[in-house]
């Protein structure tokens, strides 16, 4: 039972990371109608920069904090160099060009840092000690750092909601998503608005990468896995919907984590151990996609269809 609780918390925390990446992806798609495969690259860079700066400065937290402006700058640079020229192109061109960006940036990462996973400072001792763990059930310590990530998952969506729904900037973003020509006619620089939204999304993804760096291996290609799960999140949640992305991200995070932990053991009840391990692992990695197919079968536009489908 406590095993299930731990896995559920791990799943929630993975879901939060997915949400941070998916939110930017969904925002950029909703506002600019741009499908950006290179969003996972921002996540990867966030992790790399946080890891490297963390080791340099001697503090994980300082490194993570410094990763934010770096991710923002990289996002701005990429927007200026490539993405700006893709807003008016068809989705096929966008997919290909952003795919080219992924190849380039991942190769550059390999050239700069090598292919081996990076060392990352531990933010706090992962278990034990007053700072390291929190006793959630009697006799069961859960790492504080992972709880902090879940906490971020409560704060950031609320902040995002406030920003988009309750501020002037958010109002412009929403207006720009549905009636760009009208907003431009009213004297708003729509290009700059796009750039700001894009850079903000890039920063969120970089933040997610920095948070993830002590938990997942920091290696080239780490962005791809997350990116593709984020697509699943967006498809399930409904394109362009932040609320849908949040719920779907938690769902995908929970399903993936619990499935991987539980399925091989569960199958052992009906199959022999080696077959159970193999089918369990295969089934667990398919679980999220099966769920997606199931949800799409009944709701082709996702759970919360956004403004733009």
């Amino acid at each position: 039972m406590s095993m299930l609780l731990v896995q559920a918390l791990n799943g929630l925390q993975f879901g939060v990371l997915l949400f941070l990446v998916a939110a930017g992806l969904s925002l950029v798609f909703g506002v600019m109608d741009l499908i950006n495969l290179a969003h996972g690259v921002q996540y990867m860079l966030g992790a790399y920069v946080a890891a490297t700066l963390g080791v340099w400065t001697g503090s994980f937290w300082l490194g993570a904090l410094l990763a934010l402006p770096v991710a923002l700058l990289v996002g701005l640079a990429l927007e200026w160099l490539v993405f700006r020229h893709l807003y008016r192109r068809d989705h096929l061109s966008q997919v290909l060009a952003t795919f080219g960006v992924i190849l380039t940036v991942e190769e550059a990462t390999r050239a700069l840092w090598g292919s081996a996973p990076q060392t990352v400072l531990e933010p706090m001792a992962l278990t034990g000690g007053p700072l390291g763990g929190v006793e959630i059930v009697s006799g069961l310590l859960y790492p504080t750092y992972r709880l902090i990530i879940i906490g971020v998952g409560v704060v950031v969506p609320l902040l995002l909601w406030f920003l988009v729904e309750r501020t002037r900037a958010g109002m412009l973003v929403r207006a720009g998503a549905t009636h760009p020509a009208m907003v431009a006619a009213l004297g708003v620089d729509i290009r700059r608005l796009f750039t700001v939204v894009f850079a903000f999304g890039a920063m969120l993804a970089g933040f997610a990468g920095a948070l993830a760096s002590p938990i997942f291996p920091v290696a080239p290609g780490m962005g791809d896995t997350v990116l593709i799960l984020c697509f699943v999140v967006i498809v399930i949640g409904g394109v362009g919907s932040i609320r849908g992305a949040f719920i779907a991200a938690l769902l995908v995070g929970l399903l993936d984590t619990i499935g991987r932990a539980m399925l091989p053991d569960a199958l052992r009840l009906v199959l022999d151990p080696s077959a159970a391990r193999q089918t369990g692992a295969a089934l667990a990695s398919m679980l999220v996609y099966i769920a997606m197919a199931g949800i799409l079968f009944f709701r082709p536009a996702g759970l919360f269809p956004g403004a733009r489908a």
Partner: peptide, 11 residues
């Protein structure tokens, strides 16, 4: 690191 050339060519 040939993808450093291949990637930009693609873009």
């Amino acid at each position: 690191y040939w993808r450093l050339v291949f990637g930009p060519l693609l873009v």
